[in-house]
Amino acid sequence: MPRIAVTGGSGKLGRAVVRELVQHGYEVHNLDLAAPAEQLCPYTRVDLTDFGQVVGALTAVDDRYSGIDAVVHLAAIPAPGLRPDAATFTNNVTSSYHVFAAARTAGIRRIVWASSETLLGLPFDTPPPYLPVDEEYAARPETSYSLSKHLDEQMAAQFCRWDPEFTAVGLRFSNVMEPHDYAAFPGFDADPRQRIWNLWGYIDARDGAQAVRLALGYDRPGCEIFVIANADTVMSRRTADLAAEYFPDVPVTRELGEHETLLSIEKARRLLGYEPAFSWRSALQ
């Protein structure tokens, strides 16, 4: 099986991705500043803001490996507001450029990376153009964090233009959740505005990991972007009722399932074969 480098493999989504890939037989190497809480695969401490370290990590590390087949790039300051704006932007854009450029230097032609749902226009103070939202309208970054993710997508497209055999898959992950987070979900019903900022969406880390694995198998050269969310919302109320009450002037492009996500995953279903396997509803039964 291919040898995969996962940057940020010690993080919330990274842990799930490493576990998913290891369980499916991949040789996985975690490249991160932070050591993992659980040693699921070999770990190497790498500062992604140092280009030399990134090139070294993607070519060979002593007797551990020589050469990497594909990169999963998850490492980043993971949300707005955790660091000053310029620090978030500088860290995230620099790290992503280093990963893309080092992969090209190392002859790696396949990258899957974490983009973000924030490019859809979060927190939707300006309503979206239609519901469910999808990848078809222009990105609408509203923070320095989402602007960094927007530039990641632009960079990936240009790396693919430079090398017609390069495949870069950006996954616009929703708000990542682990099973222990679900205990708080019933409380969202008291005030839907608590979660309106991302249209009541979420992604179970295990389903996010599934999407990464499927994206590694995507065999079309070029840059492709996918929204990755769970199939349902965080709410008990019907999705159509939420849309009608909180976005009354926004067109709804099709009939909605009872609890269907408003972060459309139809493209990921169609092109990746992605189908979420987990839901907070079954976890709390």
Rank of each mutant, 00 (worst) to 15 (best):
R238F: 04
N30S: 15
Y97Q: 03
L48Q: 07
F278I: 03
N198S: 08
F173W: 14
E245H: 10
P42N: 04
D125V: 14
A106P: 05
N230I: 11
D219W: 04
Y137Q: 08
F89I: 01
K12E: 10
D62F: 09
V6Q: 05
T7K: 05
R281L: 00
G9P: 03
A106G: 02
L122M: 09
R213H: 05
Q194I: 08
Y246C: 08
Q23W: 08
R45C: 14
C223T: 04
T49W: 01
E266R: 13
E136W: 07
P221L: 06
D85R: 15
A277T: 08
F247A: 06
Q154M: 07
D85H: 12
A283W: 15
G52S: 15
G11Y: 03
D125W: 14
P141H: 03
A190G: 03
V252H: 12
S115R: 03
A76C: 14
Y218T: 03
G11Q: 06
V169S: 03
R238N: 09
W197P: 02
P78E: 13
T167R: 00
D189P: 04
D32R: 03
E255G: 14
A240P: 03
R3F: 11
E135C: 05
Q53N: 02
A5W: 02
L147S: 06
N230W: 07
E224K: 11
N30E: 08
G52E: 07
L284G: 01
H73F: 14
F159N: 10
S115D: 12
D163S: 09
S236F: 04
P80N: 05
L214R: 13
E20Y: 10
V176F: 06
S10A: 15
I265S: 04
M1R: 13
A209D: 09
W200D: 01
K267G: 00
A240Y: 01
L48I: 11
L58N: 05
V46W: 10
H29S: 07
E255I: 10
D204K: 09
P84Y: 00
L40N: 08
V252Y: 10
H180D: 13
M1C: 06
A70L: 12
D207G: 07
T253S: 14
L33I: 14
P192Q: 09
S96Q: 09
R3M: 12
L31G: 06
P186Y: 13
V46H: 14
T59N: 04
L151G: 00
I203M: 11
E135V: 10
A103D: 04
A103N: 14
R237T: 12
G208Q: 01
L119K: 00
P132Y: 00
V61L: 11
E153K: 07
I196Q: 15
A190Q: 09
V112S: 12
L119N: 06
S10K: 11
L171Y: 01
H73P: 15
A114K: 06
P132V: 03
R238Y: 07
G52K: 07
F188K: 00
A101T: 01
A102I: 01
K149C: 08
L271T: 11
G187P: 06
L263R: 03
M177S: 05
R19I: 13
H150M: 13
G8N: 02
V227T: 10
A138Y: 08
S10H: 12
R83Y: 11
L58R: 05
L122Y: 04
T118F: 12
V18H: 00
A101N: 06
